[in-house]
Simulated scan of single mutants.
Amino acid sequence: MSERSISLSLPFIQPAQAQKHITHNEAISTLDTLVQLTVISATSTNAPTDAELGDSYIIPAAANGDWADHADDVATKVEGGWRFATPNLGWQGYVQDQAIVMLFTDQGWGPALGALNNLPELGIGTTADATNPFSAKLNRALWTATEAANGGTGDVVQALNKETSSDDAGFTFQTGYATHAVFGSFGSDTVRLATTTDGTTFKDAFEVDAPSGVLVQPNLPRFRASTNFDNLAAEATWVKVAINQTEFNDQGVFDPATSLFTAPLDGTYAFGGFLAFKRDITSNVRLRGRFVKNGTDEVAGSSNELASQPTHNLTGLGLHTLVHLTAGDTVELQGYFRLGSGYFKADNSVFWGYKIG
């Protein structure tokens, strides 16, 4: 018959053993120490001379004196000295001076949380799976820096590292687990913010070119257009200039058939234009221009008149303005001649605009 138990090495009472109470009491005392193990310290290398009966310690490496050659053992003060218990894998104990739980593994004693390495899956408030090996179901999360006064640097940095430039690193924003936006470097090192309505086709709101740092807005509503014929305007008559050919027309915001810009979204828009002068009967005219909203409303502050008599085929009037529009509002470029009729010259009379906010 074995003299001690396998896990805790508790002494067994042997057949025909004298003074059985000694063996029994030793087993009870050992259980009293190891069950719900609490130790005073795991860093003391010398047995304390003022230890009281029942005080326990985890012995670190390079211990001295009575604790020499007992690294990792649990030492408990008993009458006449120290009792040592050699730990098995999985033993745990609360360390009072560090206020932590320590776990014994094949690497020795260490913080129990330190054993949470190389976990295949981890779920917080929910179940993780192979697709999402780390999952958390919560309402708020906080990352805060360890202050310099507490041994930290005061910084807090989160890194997303991908293997190659053509891989993805970023954030996916979902509603009901359906993707509506992504932010990060997807498929290249260019930083992108993109939206989607079907989870497949994405439209970039902006891109930051990796080599140059230049901000690009590939889907910004904007246009530049001109007229390809001389527009005649009678004296003292406001005329919508027939801007009928586009140089660029992102989001299709300008209609060359109607010479109208239509706001796709609520917001602030910038507009500019140039009315090039071509003589009809005389150059002794005065040239005006303006922007008009929804066909009838002059955009406040956009009306202007050339201060001097225009020069045939050489001069003209420049216009620019900012205006807040509601989705569906239209803007057009209008011209006017005082003291005579005239033309808004082909190719050089232009109209442009874009959303700025």
Rank of each mutant, 00 (worst) to 15 (best):
L314V: 13
S302A: 04
R286A: 14
L275A: 05
G318D: 01
F291V: 04
E332H: 04
A307C: 05
V331L: 03
V323A: 03
H320S: 14
T321F: 00
D280F: 10
A276L: 05
R290W: 02
Q334I: 07
L317W: 00
D329N: 06
E305S: 12
R286N: 15
L314D: 13
E305N: 08
A327D: 00
S302M: 05
F291K: 09
R288D: 11
T321A: 12
E305T: 11
G328A: 07
F274E: 01
G295M: 08
L317T: 01
D329C: 03
V292F: 01
H320Q: 15
L333R: 05
V285G: 07
N304I: 03
G289S: 13
E332S: 15
K278R: 15
R279W: 00
T311Q: 12
L325M: 08
K293T: 03
R279K: 15
I281T: 15
H312N: 15
S303C: 07
L333M: 10
L322H: 12
L325I: 04
S283R: 04
T326C: 01
A276M: 06
N284L: 14
Q309N: 14
H320P: 00
L314Y: 10
G328S: 07
L319M: 08
T296K: 01
T282L: 09
S308Y: 10
N284D: 15
R286H: 12
L333G: 03
L319D: 00
N294Q: 07
S303H: 10
A276N: 10
T321K: 07
V323E: 04
V292S: 07
T296G: 03
F291W: 03
F271G: 01
V331E: 00
K293Q: 14
V331C: 03
N313L: 10
D297L: 06
V292T: 11
T326E: 06
V323D: 04
R290G: 08
V292A: 04
G301H: 08
R286P: 06
L319K: 01
L322Y: 10
S283Y: 05
R279Q: 14
T282M: 05
G289Q: 09
R290T: 04
V285M: 05
F291M: 07
L306T: 03
K278Y: 12
E305C: 01
T315K: 02
S308K: 08
A276C: 09
L333S: 01
A327H: 05
L275N: 07
G316R: 00
H324I: 06
A327Q: 09
S303G: 13
L333P: 02
S303T: 11
R279T: 13
L333E: 02
E305W: 09
F277Q: 04
E305H: 05
T321R: 09
R279V: 14
D280V: 02
T296I: 08
H324R: 15
I281Q: 13
Q334T: 11
T296M: 03
E305V: 09
A307I: 13
T282C: 07
G318M: 04
L287S: 05
Q309A: 14
S283G: 15
A276V: 06
N313I: 08
G318N: 08
L314Q: 15
V292Y: 04
R286L: 13
V299E: 01
S308A: 13
S308L: 11
E332D: 07
L333F: 02
Q334N: 12
G272D: 09
L322V: 06
L319H: 00
K278N: 14
N284V: 13
L322M: 10
V292P: 05
T330D: 00
G289I: 08
F277P: 06
